[in-house]
Computed example of a mutant assay.
Amino acid sequence: MIGTDTRERNAVKVIGNGTKTLVLAHGFGCDQTMWRLLTPSLLDQFKIVLFDYVGCGQSDPKAFKMKRYETLDGYAQDIIDVCEELGLRDVTLVGHSVSSMTGLIAALKAPDVITKLAMVCPSPCFLNDPPHYSGGFEREDLEGLIGLMDQNYIGWANHLAPLVMGQSGAGMSKELSDSFCSTDPLFAKTFAKATFFSDCRDLLPKAEQPTLIFQSTEDALAAVSVGEFIQSNMRNAEMKVFEAHGHCLHMTHPKEIAPSLIEFALK
């Protein structure tokens, strides 16, 4: 039995007036506030569940356990815990970046709870695996990025944030950098390793949930070919590509993606 402390542990907030439920899962280095530009378009049609993974945002730092959160399964369990605490069923899980995959893991474990998946700029694997898959990064590049977290944490944040936000979100790069810097370095490094070195490609064909992929035309972390790979390897997935430069469509193009998300979640 999960205690009511789950709400405090994950800083759970419920907003909106609809009967259908959306659970919004933030990406690495972020928190639930990153959804604030998208939620106004959703409040009338949905009940919206916001939360922070343990180690992020306003979550309870005392709940962090290295063994649990060194893999994506631990973050997926946070999603399941929140849904169980609120007694949710038949929800659409909207995941940004790595949360597309944590959402997938959660959906496979709790298919009656998570019945649809919306993936914002997803990647099942950031590592290149030639000749059949290009994730965008060589292992030494990602190891260097993780190493920079130890050597110069602020420098790491200032390097990664503009890469993630892209030209479309240039004005919000400082916000993301500040979000990185506000996270305990131990928590951030643990989540970073789980994010950048995970490989969820084998899970894609196992999901039966209808899935909607939101893809930027220019994304330094997840190219269009990655979105196409996900779509082609899932049983029931569609992809919508938006003219955008960056990895955060929910922040840079919230009004553009909202109609498609609403239509998908309501049908």
Rank of each mutant, 00 (worst) to 15 (best):
T211P: 10
F191C: 05
A188V: 10
F180Y: 15
S216T: 11
D219Y: 05
L203D: 09
S225D: 12
L204I: 10
L212T: 08
G227N: 07
V224C: 06
F214R: 04
L204F: 10
F187S: 14
D199N: 14
A222K: 01
P205E: 06
T211S: 14
T195K: 00
F196R: 08
T195C: 04
V224I: 09
A207H: 06
L186P: 01
E208C: 06
S198M: 13
L212D: 06
C200D: 15
P205N: 07
L204V: 12
K206P: 11
P185T: 08
F191N: 01
G227M: 03
S177F: 04
F214L: 15
T217V: 12
Q209T: 04
D178N: 15
A220Q: 02
K206Y: 09
L203G: 10
F214D: 10
T195I: 00
S179W: 03
A223M: 14
A207L: 13
A223T: 13
A220W: 03
T195P: 00
A188M: 15
S179E: 04
V226Y: 05
G227S: 06
K206A: 14
E218H: 12
S225Y: 00
Q209W: 01
D202P: 09
R201D: 15
E218W: 11
F187Y: 14
T195M: 02
A192D: 01
K189H: 05
S225P: 05
L221A: 02
D219H: 07
D199E: 09
V224T: 11
D202E: 15
T211W: 04
F214V: 10
F196Y: 15
S225G: 09
F191P: 00
D199S: 13
V224F: 01
D184Y: 08
L221Y: 00
D219E: 08
A222C: 10
F180L: 02
P185G: 12
S179T: 01
E208I: 06
A188H: 13
S216L: 11
S179D: 02
D178P: 14
S225C: 07
Q215L: 07
I213V: 15
P185A: 07
T195A: 03
A188N: 14
G227K: 04
Q209H: 00
V224Q: 07
S216G: 14
A188E: 08
A207P: 08
D202Q: 15
F180M: 01
A223P: 05
S216I: 13
L221K: 03
A223C: 08
A223Q: 14
D184R: 10
A222I: 04
T217L: 08
K189Q: 10
F214S: 04
T183K: 02
P185W: 06
L203A: 11
E218D: 12
D219W: 05
D219A: 08
A194I: 05
T217Q: 15
P205S: 04
Q209N: 03
Q215S: 07
L203Y: 11
V224S: 01
I213M: 11
A188T: 10
A220V: 01
V226Q: 05
L212C: 07
C200W: 12
E218T: 12
D184G: 13
V224Y: 02
T217A: 06
D184M: 11
D184F: 08
E218S: 11
A188F: 13
S177E: 04
P210T: 01
A207Q: 09
V224D: 03
S182V: 11
L186F: 02
T211D: 10
E218P: 03
V226M: 04
F180W: 05
C181Q: 15
S177T: 00
L204K: 09
P185M: 08
T183S: 07
A188D: 04
